[in-house]
Design a protein around this nucleic acid. Structure first.
Lengths: 345, 345
DNA sequence: CTGAAAGCGCTTACAG
DNA sequence: CTGAAAGCGCTTACAG
């Protein structure tokens, strides 16, 4: 393997000069620089990353840990993170723990051992607490995205699920709906309980009574949206609108409702959460679910800024940034008023 | 930052002994090992990755470069690569070039500079040639997946698009179809021309004449499937079956055909390529496209094995491994024979 | 503008 | 079973 000394010898200069050229530092005569660059090019020299970061004490890398690479709104986030990091001349590298705690611990050790200058931990997993604490113990730059260790006082970027859910249900209420159902996620997860509470708050604010028949508790697993809507439409007084914990349940609910002869949006308006369609936009579909959309660009920008600030000054106070969702109006909702009028008329 | 010397001093042993413990090497008395481990734990010590790889000349890392993280069948591949690498005690780290050549060059430099022991370059991009050659010049372990620099003699894992396409069209022929159309991809790309040639070969083998009206040339862009099928169904003698370059076109074609009053599969059978549904399986849909499926597990396993073999022995001859696709039978095809019989009856 | 020397934090022979 | 010493390939003061 060819190293900086080989280049120095061939170019007839010192290692120091080669180093200056590699790092684009000033104080090298133009012809010297040129000669060195030619030698580097000619000998296919690539500076050793390990040696560089060992001595400079920085890797120029931000590490991102995912639980899994899957088709979700957070896949888009990866590309955006890279884009913003690139603007700060940082490399952004990703890994997937494949939902294996040991693998995640391995990647944390890898990054915190100096392979990265900071770590972004993405996604919610209560088992992460121990790892998060380890990272904090060594005062290693860290940003969480969508995680909830509120007691830990760390950089965290979160989505305002409560307000988003309230806004979703307000949207339905403003369309004249009062019989509004909710299919929950796993209420042990913060996102699910927040969305559930937003649903309740919207009803309360509008003076609509909470009807326990209209709330279907699920763990957000496969088929939970379909099973949920099946229960709801079989009620004596079925709801005219439905807010689901996420889009998967929303799409499932739409499909199942139609199968059962309940038209969407004619007889049932549906609002989901996440607007996953932005990831799936290439899949043609006649139905576009109305949903709450997360501001991915802003999230990526903030995450990168936060981690870099933390890298540059390790004594900064941790920040918690909250982002609001906005409604995407698809084709799965319609005002209730008009139907009542035409029924009367 | 606390280092191996701090641990050695506190534990009352030498750095060498600490190193042995860190690396699980034999030749350390059990109580010594225990004492060292406790010291490491108590002082939150994490070995410096840069120093380790500088001296050991290995990173324990395989780098994977994507053009972009997006919702495709190759997203699943990422998780599988991690899984297999993990089995060999390698970390698998990923990066996205965001389709920016400079960014890709930066990541190549990063990995080949010692941040990784080998690189897997994923996806087809003719601009990659220069980078591939650079990596080859320094004899750095490299595996391409689905790329086609046939002249370069490098490790490559490819899908047999020709045979796959032939098999797809054979499937339609065996159902009694003869009027079989094809919507192409961008024929400048190897995958597209191979699939096109497989289509032709299937027709030839069955003694069916090539009908140029049945072939719609596209660049596989948005709406190419919809536009293609629109042309086809307006022919005097419209085809009874369609093979599309990929699933996106397939799904588009199905939807557009139905919109135009052409039932799928009643009046038109459609076969796609890639079986992207395995990535999208959570999206409920009443239609499941029949498609050619790539053996992702085998591809991931082979890629990891190939790169590790190359890391362990840099003088091995490059291998080109070809994988066959298999048909996934969805609900978008049906035999022509039955319809003819019922038409007659 | 250029270079000699020290040192980053480890692992690896080597010696005992 | 344990440790002293050399050295991996760089960058960073420092000196000139």
């Amino acid at each position: 393997m060819i190293n900086i000394f080989d280049i120095a010898k061939t170019a007839g200069v010192s290692k120091t000069t080669v180093s200056r050229v590699i790092n684009n530092q000033p104080g090298v005569r133009e012809d010297t620089r040129k000669k060195v660059l030619e030698t580097i090019e000619g000998m296919n020299y690539i500076p050793n990353q390990a040696a560089r970061s060992l001595v400079s004490r920085k890797a120029g890398v931000i590490g991102v840990i995912y639980n899994e690479f899957n088709t979700s709104v957070y896949l888009e986030l990866a590309n955006l993170l890279e884009k913003y990091a690139s603007g700060y001349s940082y490399n952004m590298v990703f890994c997937s723990s494949n939902d294996d705690f040991n693998a995640k611990a391995r990647y944390v050790q890898y990054f915190t051992g100096g392979a990265a200058d900071g770590v972004i931990l993405f996604g919610s997993d209560t088992r992460d607490r121990e790892l998060v604490q380890k990272i904090e113990n060594i005062n290693f730059p860290l940003v969480l995205i969508e995680n909830h260790f509120n007691d830990l006082n760390i950089n965290n970027i979160i989505i305002d699920n409560f307000s988003g859910a309230k806004r979703a249900v307000d949207y339905l209420i403003n369309m004249g709906h009062e019989k509004i159902a909710h299919i929950t996620g796993n209420l042990n997860h913060r996102a699910a309980s927040d969305r559930m509470n937003g649903y309740i708050e919207a009803l309360n604010s509008a003076g609509i009574n909470y009807n326990k028949d209209y709330v279907v508790f699920t763990n957000a697993g496969d088929n939970s949206g379909a099973a949920g809507v099946e229960k709801l439409v079989s009620l004596k007084e079925p709801p005219t609108a439905l807010f689901t914990f996420n889009d998967l349940q929303g799409y499932e609910a739409v499909q199942k409702a139609v199968e059962l002869g309940v038209g969407v949006p004619q007889e049932l308006s549906v609002v989901g959460f996440d607007n996953i369609y932005q990831v799936l936009r290439f899949i043609p579909s006649s139905m576009r679910l109305t949903s709450m959309k997360q501001p991915m660009e802003k999230i990526a920008e903030a995450a990168v800024k936060l981690i870099i600030d933390n890298i540059n000054d390790k004594s900064t106070e941790p920040k918690v940034l909250t982002f609001e969702t906005e409604i995407y109006q698809g084709t799965s909702c319609r005002p209730l008023v008009k139907r009542l009028q035409s029924d009367v008329g």
